[in-house]
Design a protein around this nucleic acid. Structure first.
Lengths: 112, 112
DNA sequence: TCTTATACATAAGAATATTATGTATACATT
DNA sequence: AATGTATACATAATATTCTTATGTATAAGA
């Protein structure tokens, strides 16, 4: 199956929504979760993920908690209250985008 | 109504699909068509549109025909055969993207 | 006359991704 | 013991694609 393209701008929406549903997650976990959910079609690269997490944190949408599991570090991210509101906004944006794309792509607009 | 965000990467898909349905169009017409179809939610800026058209043309997906309407120039774009195939690919990518985003966002994945 | 619409274009800058690279621990296989 | 794969973080260089600003020019309406 072809590797589905990730539209630029959707990564933050993905992160926020996963955190809305999973309380807290760490970076690597997010990459695996997305791969699982999409049957390997979407692959979040680390070079995109970590900067995105840092940015969302800097904007006040995420809180971090660093844990040591065995001898290895994990940075758990969690939505702030503001982050939860932002998630709703991003979700609405995504739905509007999808709706608009379907209008544009839909054959019923073949006739002017 | 909030102005819906345009995910980066979707503009070419929009252009290709409009040309699939309208045989030939010129740039300004595309901006107006998108605005109409989406009730003003999506606004294609000229700074994005014209470079995108030039790129699609350079890649062999579009043919150009310059017409003078009255005293004003219009550059009409039309899908090449290759462009028509590419449109199908982009459409499949878009549908895969939407499907994957719905998986990620869908509440049924709330429970692990 | 002034503003808005039509119609093209490009340049500077911002945002967001890919690709490559680096560090380090843990586990499985040869 | 050595090598590869998985886990887990990170950043830098580069590419892509957009926004914003600017430019040129014709046409139409207030």
């Amino acid at each position: 199956m072809a590797n589905s393209k990730l539209y630029k701008g959707s990564l933050q929406t993905i992160i926020l929504n996963l955190l809305e549903k999973n309380d807290r997650m760490y970076g690597y976990e997010i990459t695996q979760k997305v791969k699982d959910i999409t049957n390997g079609e979407l692959k979040i690269t680390e070079g995109a993920l970590y900067p995105a997490l840092h940015k969302l944190e800097a904007e006040g949408f995420l809180d971090v908690q660093i844990l040591k599991i065995g001898n290895r570090m994990r940075k758990y991210y969690k939505l702030t209250e503001q982050g939860s509101k932002e998630t709703a906004n991003r979700l609405a944006e995504l739905e509007a985008f999808i709706k608009n794309m379907q209008f544009i792509v839909n054959p019923k607009f073949k006739i002017n």
